[in-house]
Design a protein around this nucleic acid. Structure first.
Lengths: 338, 338
DNA sequence: CTGAAAGCGCTTACAG
DNA sequence: CTGAAAGCGCTTACAG
């Protein structure tokens, strides 16, 4: 079960190690005849590059890192991350590039992981997700000179390019939809307040409400967990002037919101319309099925991976805008009864 | 930003590269005085081992692989996997060992990943999850001579050790609980039929039902998705002799089951008791909150990692039995009304 | 276009 | 207990 090396190939093909390396990597320096003979022998021997050797001499790891920093309790309930990861890998594995995934508790731990990866040359680049408003990671990437792609932009961050969808436009569509149904008291239950995209959605939510002449548009911040989503819903529904519609920042909180409404005897959608940001099988199974913002997260991940690979290949690092998420109308939204 | 090497340390400490290596790895061969001086210098220079170099000369990758092979659609909805991964990493990262995660569509793709990892020496070992009844991976690990730890046993598989919890005992407790409440028609909506633990649970379910003199104990197989869980529930509730209690193989299907019951006007728990295998925040948020089987998946993962590390250190590779999952009684189970 | 050689940064026998 | 050397399997200048 001894694994063959390029030396074995060289001997068998009657050439030098260097020639084998050139041939295998598609570099100029060997004739076509020699190249195809070498490739043939490599296939015969079922040769595969030793990753460590290649990494050491070429000074690259053939791996890209992704750190997920959210309290464990709030993670994993959302299909988003698994779909994103699947999309990233679909693109990376074709290039023999591994994805190193690390789940940590907070931003400090996340930064420590980057420093460790860098010092051990574990990764060639990283994906940055859940960007903060003032995010120390942007500067860290420059300090370490570590290529990075921001997932969820929008736009450049320092020198870092991003792949992003227009959350502001999506939020505007949601508010337009609800206002169009006649709602005048629309609330939003948002995710983590210091995330950049939370802020972007908040701004868009306020602007859209304002443009429809809606003043009663409260926003409650949470940590994305079902618990906090439920608590916020309860607070809203018990207030003197409860909203007739609530927009949730993820599907888990929306599901929790439906449960709270049911518990309090508030009919959905007759007395309360509900919109979930991010669709999931759960949204469709619920009673009533939820109106939700759908995006192709797998494709989004694949696009992010492609962009980062382009940067590693020496490309520009241009920002890429993904499609605007689509609002799927189901039975959890209707005209307000009052 | 040039990263220091052991050569830099050696020069600065006035010793040879070999001595530095010994000192850094805690091997005998250097005096205590020399060792502490070397460690001091390494700290001063903020030296970290180059992973590729270490991997090449020591012939190990310092990485362990985990492949998740389930249709993307059914993954990620379950908190189980993220908690497991977090637990694995909590144990591995202390040893500078990375976790390579790959998400694939099916078993064939999974096997291809192992072969690729092996041929590139990407991993030192792998975790095997969701074991099949006749699982080709057991033999593959022997063929490749790749150390592996089975997560979810029970017992040995070929030469592979496992970390497992007693699903059979847990299932018996669930049926005991329901029978104790007076249920005589108990159904089970199970996950993927060719998984080993599905079979184990099925056997236990049948045996427990039998021991209570219950004949009406149908089992419906699904792919773990909410869709199929909902469809199976609908079929059961519309049958001539609908069950008064249903046991679901995961939380997602249980949630879907509640939605279907609500839709059909079947009151939970008055007319239908529901038990979820695997607890999640969602189970507690639902109306009514679900009686569920709880396990500490994070700790389970950590335990699996510890066991595999012990094997890599040359240990025995003993099977480890985790705690029996605990049934948490909430409001979705009660005595049948009929 | 091709071959022989040096080097990536470690670990590991092997002499002293 | 210590030092000098070879080697892991590749890539990459550098001569021919």
């Amino acid at each position: 079960m001894k694994r063959p090396t390029i030396m074995d190939i060289a001997r068998r093909a009657g050439v030098s190690k260097g020639a084998v390396s050139m041939a295998l990597n598609g570099l100029p320096g060997v004739s076509e005849a020699t190249r195809s003979r070498i490739l043939e022998v490599a296939r015969e021997l079922d040769w595969h590059p030793n990753n460590a050797a290649r990494a050491l001499s070429a000074a690259r790891a053939d791996a890209i890192g992704l750190v997920l920093a959210r309290p464990a309790r709030t993670l994993g309930v959302e299909p988003f991350f698994f779909q994103l990861i699947s999309g990233l890998q679909a693109e990376l594995s074709g290039r023999r590039i591994a994805l190193l995934l690390q789940v940590v508790e907070d931003l400090d731990a996340e930064i420590a992981v980057y420093r460790q990866w860098w010092s051990e040359r574990r990764v060639d680049a990283v994906f940055l997700i859940d960007l903060r408003v003032e995010d120390p990671r942007v500067e860290l990437m420059e300090e370490l000179d570590l290529p990075a792609m921001v997932i969820g932009g929008p736009g450049h961050h320092g020198r870092l390019p991003s792949v992003w969808a227009d959350d502001a436009k999506a939020m505007t569509r949601i508010v337009d939809h609800l206002a169009g149904l006649g709602h005048r008291r629309i609330a939003r239950i948002a995710g983590l307040p210091d995330l950049l995209h939370t802020e972007r959605r908040t701004e868009a939510f306020r602007a859209a409400a304002h443009s429809h002449g809606i003043d009663a548009a409260p926003i409650l911040m949470t940590d994305y967990s079902g618990e906090q989503g439920a608590a916020a819903t309860r607070r809203l529904l018990r207030s003197p002037q409860p909203p007739t519609a609530i927009v949730y920042d993820n599907d888990v909180m929306a599901v929790a919101g439906v449960a709270v409404a049911t518990e309090l005897g508030v009919a959905v959608p007759a007395s309360l319309s509900i919109v979930a940001w991010d669709d999931s099988p759960l949204c469709q199974l619920l009673h009533p099925p939820l109106t939700a913002l759908t995006r192709d997260t797998f494709a989004f991940g694949a696009s992010a991976a492609r962009s980062l690979l382009a940067v590693l290949d020496g490309g520009e690092g241009a920002d890429v805008e993904d499609h605007v998420p689509i609002l799927v109308h189901r039975e959890s939204t209707s005209a307000p009864s009052a």
